[in-house]
């Protein structure tokens, strides 16, 4: 094909793709899509999948120490959900032409990221409450918005995930409420967890809109439907009241209701810390990656055995037929 012709075809393709987006039609795996759209989705969905999987670790740190059978059951079911959600998201990303093996390689090489929040340690039992209430709470605000994302498989995964995660935030809040109604030690642990998780939770929404403008491709192609600051405000507005009900103090002296905006104003977020953790210097970056790499390496012989067994059985079946 002549270069001229090729360019015309690409322009037509982009036009019909953008018309589809304009009509709010979902984009499906076999639809033609601009390379940049595909790349953006692979990056975002695989990062989302890795976050679910790496997110199993901080909570996993408390499974064997959960203080009651009920607490242990809930925690296990929640972490299991996260593994399942990682699976749904890996599947969604796979429809774009990348394999799970490649995604794991990218995670291990550092090319693919996961949510910064999981580079913080879970230090006391109230951290399990704070992770469910604040971290899942923040994630849910984002994920509810993503249910309307333009890529069909991603959107469907988000719908399923949102439905299942509705208990995650509630169980976290229940832990916090119980501890705030408990002994002085328990209240201290709860407030301590609140102090450590509040700001990282706000950072989960990403940089301010002034740094990350709404006009990018992610908005144009309706991958993202609401801005970082809009989503962050939504989270703060609903969480402040919940904290008040159980007597927790939000560690932000500048936090106050802004009648004119209809939202809370909050104090400055420490973006230095945010970028520092992104760049690998958070308290647990190395630990989380080492854990994932170790488990992956330790599991190789099992996966190889499963494949070898299948191959043997197929060969036997073939021979018995011939």
């Amino acid at each position: 094909m002549e270069l001229q012709e090729q360019t015309t075809v690409q322009v037509d393709l982009l036009k019909s793709f953008e018309e589809k987006i304009g009509r709010d039609d979902a984009i499906e795996p076999k639809d033609k899509m601009p390379d940049a759209y595909r790349k953006h989705l692979i990056r975002q969905i695989s990062q989302h999948a890795h976050s679910e999987v790496i997110g199993m670790q901080p909570e996993g740190n408390w499974i064997t120490r959960a203080p009651s059978l009920r607490a242990k059951q809930i925690l296990l079911a929640k972490i299991q959900d996260e593994g399942g959600h990682g699976l749904y998201l890996y599947s969604a990303a796979e429809t774009l032409g990348i394999s799970r093996t490649e995604m794991i390689e990218q995670l291990h090489s550092g090319k693919a990221k996961y949510s910064n929040i999981f580079n913080y340690p879970a230090l006391n039992w109230a951290d399990i409450g704070a992770i469910g209430w604040l971290v899942d709470g923040a994630a849910i605000v984002n994920q509810v918005s993503l249910q309307r994302t333009s890529y069909g498989p991603y959107s469907r995964a988000m719908v399923r995930i949102c439905k299942e995660e509705s208990f995650h935030q509630r169980q976290g809040y229940e832990i916090m409420a119980k501890m705030m109604a408990g002994t002085a030690d328990q209240r201290e642990m709860a407030q301590d967890a609140m102090n450590r998780w509040w700001w990282p939770a706000l950072m989960m929404f990403g940089p301010h809109d002034s740094e990350s403008p709404r006009s990018g491709d992610a908005f144009k192609w309706k991958i993202k439907r609401q801005s970082n600051d809009e989503l962050r405000a939504k989270f703060i507005d609903k969480t402040v009241q919940q904290a008040e009900v159980i007597g927790l103090t939000i560690p932000d002296k500048d936090l106050k209701w802004n009648e004119a905006r209809g939202h809370y104003d909050h104090g400055p977020i420490d973006w230095n810390e945010f970028y520092n953790v992104i760049n690998g210097n958070g308290p647990c970056n190395k630990q989380r990656m080492d854990h994932h790499k170790r488990v992956h390496a330790e599991g190789a012989w099992v996966r190889e055995a499963a494949e070898a067994y299948r191959a043997k059985k197929e060969k036997q079946l073939f021979q018995s037929k011939n």
Binding site: S99, T101, E307
Partner: peptide, 8 residues
């Protein structure tokens, strides 16, 4: 030995 995969 077969190569490591994430299965089918």
């Amino acid at each position: 030995m077969s190569a490591d995969t994430q299965l089918e």
